[in-house]
Simulated assay, not measured.
Amino acid sequence: MELNKDFWEERYQAQKTGWDIGAVSEPLKVYIDSLKDTSATILIPGAGNSYEAEYLHNKGFENVDVIDIAKQPLVNFQNRVPDFPKENLIQTDFFEFSKTYDLILEQTFFCALDPVLRQEYANKMSTLLNKNGKLAGVLFDFPLTKDGPPFGGSKSEYITYFQNLFNIKTMERCYNSILPRKDTELFIIFEKE
């Protein structure tokens, strides 16, 4: 199975989006609620329907970019949040994207990538962040499987990808996951050195 643009476009067209919980995830909502600087530059890659971007927008964050390889989730988002700046909805391949940010939010993107791309993901995140920028969000914590997406993984595995690029500030079991994801999510905050 190739996890390419056509794969994701078909999933959205057929509404086969079991990962989509229909709202901002509670761990990210709590984190967003702790942010004070509404002018911070924020990226949400592989954003899908991006309820996190909607939540940020509704809280007055002005510099949020949303990227996805598929067009349909961006259309869905624009229809749902018509006053969100269209130029901040970017259809592109994450690995070909270049701009820098103060914060990148991770929500079901890492686990949707082929696991062979994990170190490349970590490297790319480092290049997309400003000095002292943060990568924050949720990673799945269940055994790595060939059947995905989502693909699992573990704290010890994740550390190997990020430890040489970031100061690992937080990597702990989420206390506020939705019930179907209880005990299967790690909340992360990695700071670029």
Rank of each mutant, 00 (worst) to 15 (best):
A23M: 06
A23Q: 12
L28I: 15
K29G: 03
K29S: 11
Y31T: 06
D33T: 10
D33P: 08
L35M: 15
K36Q: 15
T38P: 04
S39L: 10
A40C: 09
A40D: 08
T41R: 14
T41Q: 12
L43N: 05
L43M: 06
I44N: 08
A47C: 14
G48Q: 07
S50L: 09
A53T: 12
E54M: 15
K59F: 01
N63L: 04
V64F: 02
V66N: 05
A70C: 13
Q72G: 00
N76M: 03
N76W: 01
Q78D: 03
R80S: 08
V81Q: 07
P82W: 08
D83R: 00
Q91S: 11
D93A: 10
D93L: 09
F97S: 10
K99S: 13
K99P: 01
Y101L: 09
D102A: 10
L103P: 00
Q107W: 06
T108R: 07
F109K: 06
A112S: 15
L113S: 02
V116D: 13
R118M: 04
S126K: 13
T127L: 13
L129C: 08
L129D: 08
K131D: 12
K131E: 14
K134G: 00
L135V: 05
A136M: 14
V138N: 05
F140C: 06
D141I: 02
F142Q: 09
F142I: 08
P143G: 07
P143S: 13
